[in-house]
Design a protein around this nucleic acid. Structure first.
Lengths: 184, 184
DNA sequence: CTATGTGAATTTATTCACAGCA
DNA sequence: TGCTGTGAATAAATTCACATAG
């Protein structure tokens, strides 16, 4: 809406766009203060700024990718991170044939060098390694000072409480569909 | 655990493995009946069978992929669907250069031919097209009789109530991390 | 003795309904 | 008149605690 030059949006506008009830949107916003103007709606520019601040997205962030296989490569060239000011600034793999190659202008490093993340002040990582290697990769990331992990491996990963993991299990999400579908 | 030849598991075993409280696991199972043996735990083979039945995963399923770009190609060659007896049996794209090519032994078809899904009795689809094309792709899928959609486009998709959509927004999931991370 | 299954208690989330502001 | 913000009401999910079965 910002890009389309729109100035304000009501909770009902947002509702239609997001598939969330209008009262839910208002209630959620209200927990963080009052951003809107009664009778008008929400000033879009202001709203974006507020929400980014709440979600701690108010400054550019760098992330590292571990595992440059099919999925990792796709993630690397995915264009959608920019909207949240994210940038994949480092890539790692265990395969000697891949190390040294470039992908999206980033040199693929040896996964045993994860410690460089500390120097580069990258504290967010994306795990796109096989399931068997996921836990040990996470352990190494934690050692390297990473505080947030997006995990594409189909398994639960154990980390210290200070570290946040969000797991995306593609196959499981696909497998959730039949439950909601009519028999046949 | 089944593959490792284990026979039974307690809710505490599962808890450690899944990162879910033991009582939550027991309560969740109990909503669908009693599968366990007090003093012993759950018979793994039986449990898997029961859960697959509940989730309607007790027979092999075919899915179609729409959009064979970076992400689509990665999804196509992703090995993880087999565990749920899923098989990607058709692929579509809008790019004439891609149509006719093969990927994972599947011929890429023209997206304007989505109607063939009806004949092939495929009622689950994966959307991996750019955001701008997502809604129209979903509309075409619904027309072709699809009842379940896994949507990788970063947008909410409107479909009739009878159709289930699960959206995976990779960038949004990455962007959720900073909120939970310590300041710095 | 161990581990399930489940009522009851507690906590959390959603929905309603409307006062009040532009 | 239109839309926000929010207390109150309702609904849902989680957690506890323990009777009960192997």
């Amino acid at each position: 809406m910002l890009k389309e030059g729109q100035k304000s949006a009501s909770s009902h506008n947002l509702s239609g766009l997001l598939g969330i009830n209008a009262w839910q949107i208002r209630k959620d916003f209200s927990y963080f203060g009052a951003f809107g103007t009664p009778g008008v709606g929400y000033d879009i520019e202001k709203l974006v700024k507020q929400v980014k601040k709440i979600l701690k997205l108010n400054e550019p962030k760098k992330a590292a990718l571990i595992g440059v296989g099919n999925l990792g490569s796709a993630v690397m060239s995915y264009a959608g991170f920019g909207i949240y000011d994210f940038n994949i600034a480092a890539a790692f793999d265990i395969n000697p044939k891949k190390i040294g190659r470039k992908i999206s202008n980033i040199r693929i490093e040896d996964v045993s060098n994860l410690q460089v993340l500390k120097k580069q002040k990258i504290n967010i990582a994306i795990i796109a390694v096989p399931r068997e290697a996921a836990q040990q990769t996470a352990d190494a990331l934690v050692k390297a000072g990473v505080k947030g992990i997006l995990n594409f491996s189909p398994c639960h990963i154990k980390v210290p409480k200070k570290v946040k993991v969000i797991t995306i299990d593609i196959a499981m999400d696909l497998a959730r569909l039949p439950y909601y579908m009519p028999a046949g």
